[in-house]
């Protein structure tokens, strides 16, 4: 099966700045693909390379097997939900949604009917006459989504679409987006810097760092078996352990990661590893206890309902040997 989008050794350099540097990626058709990384890591540039707003300075991008090199954005059957939504301020919601059909020459009656269908899909029936300025952030986001779907794109690109929403709304929209994608079976490519968002929604996650892809995999793989220190650090709040620490925990002399939830506090007497509590952070579902041991600080997640030690107390650290994940590279 051909991939929906394929990056073959793609680079995009702006003068001396290597925004994207030799990226290879394959995005399967019908998948929900997240591009995760800090700002400036090249993920948004990758998205703009797919939509055609940037052209690669090296390599090629294939969309359903076709080289997109010479195809301008308006002739790519790929649509985007922009970070700031980019709704047309002078048009009402219905005309915004129908815009893609209007420029194709679809007559007014048919395109308005179609726009109403899509507004119903995003639960905005009856909002057609309003101007974007009269909508809330969440509503604008839905309009942007409906507008991007009107042309029935083969790939939908979403550029930090939930970034401007407050927490509660963001979580609701995450569920809705996921449900929508499963219903429409369109390939979604989703850019975010929020690891929770990427892990909870995506089938596949690509973690970006400094213009390169650090790791691609399912959320479980990226979270549980990070390939590099960067991935371990950025995805979640893992303990990244240097080789000497790994050895003290009984592993080989290599960098490793250890999830806080895979560890538990035990009495210091007779424990293989012990130290002092230096900080506590209450997280609601549990408490993160930071323990200083052997020159390193290790976080331990203590579930709610379990006794939490005072700062300064001596504790022992217990862990499952299998949870110690060795990384390929530093």
């Amino acid at each position: 099966m051909t991939a929906a989008v394929e990056f073959r050794n793609v680079s995009r350099h702006f003068g001396p700045v290597r925004a994207v540097d030799g990226v290879d990626l394959s995005i399967a058709e019908g998948s929900f693909f997240a591009m995760l990384g800090p700002s400036g890591s090249g993920k948004t540039t990758c998205l703009r390379l797919i939509s055609g707003f940037e052209s690669p300075t090296g390599g090629e991008i294939r969309i359903f097997g076709e080289n997109s090199g010479s195809v301008p954005p308006n002739r790519r059957n790929v649509n985007t939900v922009f970070q700031d939504y980019a709704l047309f301020p002078h048009m009402n919601v219905r005309d915004n949604v129908a815009y893609g059909l209007m420029v194709k020459g679809v007559d007014r009656v048919r395109r308005h009917a179609r726009a109403e269908e899509l507004l119903a899909l995003v639960k905005l029936d009856g909002y057609g006459e309003r101007k974007p300025g009269q909508l809330s952030g969440g509503q604008r986001q839905r309009v942007a989504l409906a507008r991007a779907l009107v042309n029935e794109p083969r790939v939908l690109l979403l550029d930090e679409p939930l970034g401007a929403l407050d927490l509660k709304l963001r979580e609701a929209m995450q569920d809705e987006l996921k449900a929508l994608q499963q219903r429409l079976r369109i390939t979604f490519v989703f850019v975010t810097h929020d690891q929770g968002e990427a892990l909870s929604m995506a089938d596949q996650v690509a973690v970006f760092s400094e213009g390169r892809v650090a790791q691609v995999g399912t959320p479980a793989e990226v979270y549980g078996r990070p390939r590099t220190r960067f991935v371990a650090d950025f995805v979640g709040s893992s303990n990244v352990l240097p080789p000497e620490m790994t050895q003290r925990l009984g592993g080989p002399a290599r960098w490793s990661s250890l999830r806080p939830e895979a560890m538990r506090l035990i009495p210091p007497e007779g424990a293989a590893l012990s130290g002092q509590v230096t900080a506590l952070r209450y997280l609601g579902a549990g408490t993160r206890v930071v323990v200083r041991t052997g020159g390193a600080e290790i976080g331990v997640l203590v579930p709610a309902g379990t006794a939490v030690p005072e700062p300064g107390a001596s504790v022992g650290l217990g862990f499952d040997r299998a949870a110690l994940h060795l990384m390929d590279e530093a």
Binding site: I63, R76, N77
Partner: peptide, 14 residues
Amino acid sequence: MNAAPPEPVAVTLP
């Protein structure tokens, strides 16, 4: 909106 996969539209529009 139907729940079936979208009918194959060309990737590159003429």
